[in-house]
Structures are given as structure tokens and as C-alpha cells.
Design a protein around this nucleic acid. Structure first.
Lengths: 242, 242
DNA sequence: CGCTGCATTGATGAGTGTCAAAATTGGTGG
DNA sequence: CCACCAATTTTGACACTCATCAATGCAGCG
């Protein structure tokens, strides 16, 4: 038994634009089921032509791109509410893989219905495009981080971004949130080595700016971190939910 | 006097999906004019809420993201046929700047009409989204380059990508194409220093793989380059033209 | 002709990567 | 509840890619 869209827990969160009853009903028709996966499970594979699209209902994961020789780049982190599979839906091929890092529940849509969004519900099509543009925006920022920022700046940047996403989803309590990723994940996201990432993180702890251990991230001075990261501290807008 | 869409030189190129006469006529209604700019001219500014969208008709440019402290990351290179301003159109804010590197002619659309694509021409809305997804795909690949590849691999990768884009647009003759960028542009695109980029390029020349001087890029062994770059050599699909 | 921007080259060193091993954690089964 | 194993984190030593600095050359241009 799957959750009905009208009871979707995400649609109540302030991070998202509220869907109208009408839209909820429309989405319900697309929903073909729910998928529950364990940590480590691949959800979509790079290069695959997946027939399904997902929205993360709960849990967290990563998007990662693999090189032929085994190295990998984490593209970004998947949080609840994220739409997964846009590339497969439109291009017929994923440019990266998606893998669960916690238990996840995913809302499953059928890709064959994709076109009907555009045909019959332009608002929803617009929302999809909005999400794509937002993704592009964020990837540009990430690229600037990996390309230009020092290790210290990059790690600080990542902590700020992750923390702010957590805040927007009410995952933060007492300046603290749970982070199911490993330091290797963060290293691969920033183009740094695991060892150096670890040493940089411990500097942040020494300076009492942020500490992350036992899967718990604690941010003590967000502004100082943003300062180190050479970035502005602005809160995200509400975004559409698919 | 501006070119009429039905005579658009791009729509004949094999790189692009051919617009139907119907679609051409529809696009014509959106076209509010043409913009001609000289090298170095900023077309869109990071953070701005530009009222206009563009398609590059001819000439080349760069997208770049600036950090507060002056460093910058080149996001990618703008070639003829590229759609510019998606982020402003959808998000109301550009995540990067766009700047001309040669003389450019740009087809100008009015952003206020953006929504009507979705409402009245779902095929065109779909195409926009397709382009956004493609951009996301490419940015992921770039991120993997900057994050994971060595300087040698990254520079080779860049040469391969640029050359292949040139090929698809018939800009290549005798394994040769014109490249209006500076080595600084490429360095900023790959997160490398100018000096190191220069030295890496001269290694490629020594090895008789590629040479780039006086704005002319010559590729002698594309497959060897792709090999060094740890990348597959696949030709791009035809893409929609806005 | 003297700018100015860009390409090129050499010398030096900092920032990161790599290697290796120990410490810690969490999970599993006896 | 303990022993064992795998995964992850942590630490130290060392190597090397790549950044930085500085100077020269070269071409385009008012």
C-alpha cells in the first residue's frame, strides 16, 4: 500500500511550493508505485535508459559519475523532494548514477507518461524545467568550487550548502543534523583526496566552526564558514515538487 | 533589418533538428530582434534578472561564474546555436555571466513570452527542457573532469570536446578549426593555472597530438587524445534549436 | 614606436595526493 | 556478551603535481 499523493508528507513542507488539490490529483495518476531501497542500492545507472522517474520521498543518496578507470565524481547529494531521472526521461540516457546512502522511499513515475506533462499540464512541465534550470545553476556553482576554491574553502562551502539544505527541510535541530555520507563521498564531491578531506575537516573542528562525526554534523558558526568559503549566505527559494 | 527565421542559417545545419515551417513561423513571432556584439562584450551578467533570452546565431563566447574575490570559473563555451539565458528566464537570476569572444550575432527573444511556450507550444517547451537536461549532462561531465582528471587528461578532454563541437557545426576543415579563446579561458574552464595549461598544451604539441596557436586548433590524433582523456569518443545527437 | 595583451619558459615551493598503518566504529555470529 | 571482521576515520611521512613568481618574447595597434 502506497501513500496517496494527497497525503504526501513533502507537500506540507515549507521548502516546497504547495501543489493545488488539482495538481495533486493529476500527479496521483502518474504515480505507479513506491520503491523502498536500502543503503548502497543503485537506483539509476549511468548510461542506462531507465523507464522510470522518481521523487525522493525520504532518505538520502548521491548522484555520481564514473570514469572508465574507476575514479568517480559525486555530482551532488540527493535529499528528500529531489526529482531523479530527468536525464533518462528526456535524453534517454543518464549521465550519472544515483545510489542510496540511507534507506530511501521513492515515488515512482512512469517515463512513458512524461510527454503528457507537456501536452496536458504546462504548469507541471514548467516546474520540471524550473528544476532542470536550478540543477544547472547549482552545478555551475559546484564547478566553481571544485575548479577554483582551495580545499579549505571547498570543504567549508560543502558544509554550508549541506547544512542549508538540511535547514530548509527541517532536518536541523540545535545546529545539528544527521549526515549519512562518508568522508569519501564528500572527497569525491570536491575532487579532493579522502585523506586531505579528513585533515581539512579536523581543522574546521579545531577552529570550532563545524564538527562532523558519528554521522552528525554540527555547525557552530555558519557565517564564518561562509566567509571562509568565499560565498554568500542566501536562503533557497521554495521549489516545485514533482 | 534582421534575418527572418525562415532563412535562419542554423536551421539548415545537420547539427540541429529541423524546425517545421509551422514552428519557424511560431518562433518568428517571439523574435524581437537581433543583437550584434564585439569581442569582450558582456551579454548577460551573473546575478542579473535579464528580460531577454538569446540564441547565438554566429560567433563564440563563454559562460563564466565569478567568485567574490575575483577568481572565475569558465562554465562552458558558447557555440552557434546555443540557447542563452535559460536561468534568467526561469529562475529570474543568472548563475553565470555570458561574454562574447568573437563578434557575435544573437537572436533576441522576449522573456515575458516564455510562459507561452509552455502554454501554447508544448513541443517547444519540451525542447527547452531537453536543452536544459543536456546542459546538466554536460556540466556533470565537466565536473568529473575538473574534479578527477589530471591536467594532461583534462586538457586532452577539452580539446576533444571542443573539436567535436566544431565538427558538428562544420567548423572543421583539414582537422583544423578556429578557436577564438585564450589559454586563460581554457585554464579557467579546467581549474588549472594559465602557466600549467600552457605547458600541458605544449606537451600535446610535442607528442604530435594537437597543436593550438594563432587561434587555430589542429587535431592530429583524436583517438589518442580521447584515450589520454579517459573518455569515450561519441558523436553528439542532433539537438533542438530555439 | 611604445603600448598592451597573450604566449612561453625557467625556477621555486606550497598545497594536495599517495602510501601505510593504527584507531575507531558498527555489525555479525557464536 | 564477547570475538571477529569490514568499513571508516585518523595520523604521520613523503612525493609530486601543479601554482606562483618573474622575465622574455611576440604580435597587434593607436
Amino acid at each position: 500500500m502506497t501513500t496517496q499523493c494527497k497525503y504526501c508528507p513533502l507537500n506540507r513542507k515549507e521548502a516546497f511550493l504547495r501543489l493545488s488539490a488539482d495538481e495533486v490529483e493529476y500527479m496521483q495518476r502518474f504515480k505507479v508505485g513506491e520503491l523502498a531501497v536500502d543503503p548502497g542500492t543503485p537506483i539509476l545507472m549511468q548510461g542506462s535508459n531507465a523507464p522510470q522517474l522518481f521523487t525522493a520521498l525520504s532518505g538520502m543518496g548521491i548522484r555520481e559519475r564514473h570514469l572508465k578507470d574507476g575514479r568517480k565524481q559525486v555530482i551532488n547529494f540527493v535529499f528528500p523532494g529531489d526529482f531523479i531521472g530527468l536525464q533518462a526521461g528526456l535524453l534517454g540516457e543518464m549521465g550519472h548514477s544515483v545510489e542510496a546512502r540511507t534507506q530511501m522511499r521513492l515515488c515512482v513515475f512512469n517515463r512513458s507518461e512524461f510527454w503528457s506533462f507537456f501536452k496536458n499540464h504546462p504548469e507541471r512541465a514548467f516546474d520540471i524545467t524550473w528544476l532542470a534550470a536550478m540543477e544547472e545553476h547549482f552545478l555551475g556553482e559546484t564547478l566553481a568550487t571544485v575548479g577554483q576554491r582551495t580545499a579549505m574553502q571547498a570543504v567549508s562551502w560543502a558544509m554550508v550548502k549541506i547544512f542549508q539544505r538540511g535547514e530548509s527541510l527541517n532536518m536541523v535541530h540545535n545546529n545539528t543534523m544527521e549526515l549519512p555520507y562518508t568522508q569519501r563521498d564528500v572527497a569525491d564531491a570536491l575532487g579532493l583526496s579522502l585523506v586531505h578531506t579528513n585533515k581539512t575537516l579536523s581543522k574546521l573542528k579545531d577552529r570550532q566552526l563545524a564538527s562532523w562525526s558519528d554521522r552528525i554534523l554540527q555547525i557552530n558558526d555558519l557565517e564564518a564558514l561562509a566567509d571562509i568559503a568565499v560565498t554568500e549566505l542566501k536562503t533557497a527559494r521554495r521549489r516545485p515538487l514533482m
